[in-house]
Amino acid sequence: MMVRHGKTVLFFIGLTLWAAQPVLAAEGKTLQIDGSTTVGPLGDAFAEVFKELHPDVSITVKKTGSGDGAAALIDGRCDIAMMSRFMKDKEFQQAVEKGVFPVAHVIAMDGVCVVVHPSNPVTELRTEQIRDIYMGKITNWKELGGPDMPIVPVSRDTSSGTYESFHSMVMHNEKMAANVEYVNSNPQAHARVRSTPGAIGYVGIGFLDRYVKALKVDGVMPTRSTIAKGIYPVSRPLFLFTNGYPKLGSIIHAFCTFYLTEKGQEIIEAKGFVPVTEY
């Protein structure tokens, strides 16, 4: 009994050592997708439909954030990196140094919508006001014409692409105040705002529903058309990054051009994003 267990242990230790080489990455019919939690639902849905079209391909979608998606692509840990921002200079440099040449595919547009609880009478804010809220200069809704209620600013965690978009487009790279709450995903941000009358948060346009109220930013309401046209001040493209342009006809190529098909477009709309092409 004991001896057999000992063997099992040895066996598994051996296996671990063997595992030191990434075994699976070398295999052909797998597709590793990694990256942004914003693009993640799209990746999931694409993968789901893809599974029906190509039953022999095993697709893994990991939603670990844009930064990690870039790093994974650079390290060769994934085939496709989903990103809600463009690659940074540093990441590009690292990639090229490692012989990876990132190619961007814009698959959809997304607007970062500023949302509040529906009981909040405020309907419109200027970017400066939003910035002041997140910098802690405005702390009560009554300063903005709302009820006497402390503002609970909710932000995405600092590694997310949504945060970076918001940070550069609204915050102009100013640091946020200490009382800002951090949540780890869009749904969580949505849930926090939904359940908190005094909260303000920001989510992708796919997360607007009856439970939260989107604010006009600089007089522009976030809608599909304002985002697609880029009128809404906080809109951004969503990317897939691949190492070089994928070989035509390969599974990666099929995945990266899936957004052009009608089904892909429908999914993009179903998931609440804005397709880049009109069909």
Partner: peptide, 10 residues
């Protein structure tokens, strides 16, 4: 909260 999303080596 942060480790899952942060690129390795930074």
């Amino acid at each position: 909260g942060e480790l899952g999303e942060v690129p390795q080596g930074t």
